[in-house]
Simulated assay, not measured.
Amino acid sequence: MKSAVLPEIFDEAKIGRTPVYQPYLVGNVSRYVNDCLDSGWISSRGEFVPKFETGFAEFVGANEATSVANGTVALHLALEALGIGSGDEVIVPTLTYVATVNTILQTGAKPVFVDSLADTLQMDPLATEQAVNPRTKAIMAVHLYGHPCDMASIVAICRRHDLLLIEDCAEAFGSQWNGQHVGNFGDAATYSFFGNKTITTGEGGMVVTRDPEIMRRCRRLKNQGVSSTREYWHDILAYNYRMTNIQAAIGLAQLEVASEILALKAQVAEAYRVGLAGLPLRTHDPVGSVTHSHWMCSVIVDRCQDRDPLRAHLADQEIETRPFFPPTHTLPHCRGEGEFPVAAGLSARGINLPSYPGLGQGQINRICAAIRSFWR
């Protein structure tokens, strides 16, 4: 494949609002979707579902993968298949998207929150080990904004205490720890293909696991618990979490250009790193032997009082941004014990900048100039 290069041409007169994200729908997307329409296979059966599952497993290095309707139900399905439920505790970083914690609560288990590391933004392994107690059943590692967690430390904690490990890779397609794609370190892992994810199916998600029995449970639970030997016989409480053939068609087309997308996103992140050097902020750079997929290109301003005025300044110039997630332990239905100063500080100072792979060099120059003008 031809190497991806950020476009240099930029016409200020033609630019409007710059969104935080927009999907990169190139290649065979239209062709594959039209194949679904022409064949009539538009629901959860059809040739693209198994093709996408097989192709995805190969790309991330997993043994098997099963597709689902979205990334949230992927998490719920993995937790259910692993037998996590009432009376169990799951250790999770408080600095994460609410879906991570919602799915733990939906199983009847209790989320136990831990703080993050300031440099990587990922869950703190020391705090994680200190949170282990006799009720702990699992650790949920969340690879936030595309940077991997410290998987060597987290895997070691799980082995020492005989805990299950689930990886939330919703934001980490293309991320690697020591040369290994995330999602291959634990008992199960999940991905999201929402419209703002690195590869998208509009909505959609995937569960991967190394254990054939866990995969068998996932496939049965996502398909209404139907018997494999008797038609319309359902003998367990289960769900309809299936992906459609049209979603899978889009996903397969996205997989075909995934390396190009990841290369472009890496160039966008590098352009921000260069363009914002010397300002009272830092970019979210890779730390250690990792591949940061840069789902979001993030900056952390030095002073929390600058964050919201900077976002307002950019909004005035039609540049959309997003704040970092609020610590989930502060949300009304997720209230948890403890103080998490690093997560709180990051949440108060973090901004996600426009991060899509089609972002040109001229647009990035404009965004960087707008940020610089805030401090003049």
Rank of each mutant, 00 (worst) to 15 (best):
L82W: 14
F52K: 00
L79G: 03
V60Q: 00
A69C: 15
L95D: 04
D38K: 09
V26P: 00
D35M: 15
V49D: 00
V26S: 03
N34G: 08
A81D: 07
V33D: 01
A57C: 06
I91E: 05
G85L: 11
Y32N: 09
A99E: 03
P23E: 09
V68N: 08
A99W: 03
N28V: 07
V68L: 08
V98D: 11
G87Q: 12
L79M: 14
Y32Q: 03
W41A: 01
A78N: 13
A81T: 14
I104Q: 03
G55V: 10
N34A: 06
P23G: 11
L77D: 07
T66A: 12
V73F: 07
L82V: 11
R45A: 14
G83E: 05
G40F: 10
G83A: 06
A65S: 12
A99S: 10
D88H: 15
N70H: 09
V29D: 00
D35V: 08
A62C: 05
I91S: 01
A69R: 12
E58C: 14
V33G: 02
N63L: 09
I104A: 10
L95C: 07
L37C: 10
D88E: 14
F56M: 01
L25I: 02
E80T: 15
V73Q: 06
E53S: 07
K51V: 03
D38C: 05
S67H: 05
P50G: 06
F59R: 02
K51G: 05
G46D: 02
W41R: 02
F52H: 01
E53F: 07
V98A: 13
D35G: 09
S86N: 14
E80M: 10
G40Q: 12
G87W: 15
